[in-house]
Amino acid sequence: MENLPAIERTIEAIVAAKQSLPGALLPILHEIQDGLGYIPSESVPRIAKALNLSRAEVHGVITYYQHFRQIPPGRHVLRVCCAEACQAVGGEALAEHARLRLQGSDLTLEPVYCLGLCACGPALQIDETTLHARVTPQKFDALVDALEVDP
């Protein structure tokens, strides 16, 4: 919280730059999340006011999309695919394994619905940068071990 003014400045700048776009809400939310890693609840009144929306409406949109986070993410974000093809090859078990493995960790686990690797699931994405196919619990643990030692 010590850099709240900086966060506020970022939000302010994003809202000001984008508020007159048609359908400005999603672009604003994306940019805030891209910039800050999440959408702070304090930004909601500011966005609502600028777009003539209620706080509830903005909140409804944020919670509707899995993509948007309301709390800051951990050092890394791991997304386990929970869509049909991956479910059929053990995706659910992987997700449950991941949940237990990451309890108390500073890494964030999120569900995702299809990563385009349906032919070789279960699929996992790390930080929107790397994709991993055929992820077994053992493979998952190895990846996590690497992330945990990696600063």
């Binding site: 609840s41 909601v44 706080r55 509830a56 903005v58 909140h59 409804g60 919670t63 509707y64």
Partner: peptide, 14 residues
């Protein structure tokens, strides 16, 4: 309505 699908629920404000 916050959330989606089975998690949809009525929410006041945020």
């Amino acid at each position: 309505i916050s959330g989606r699908g089975f998690e949809s629920r009525v929410a006041a404000g945020q």
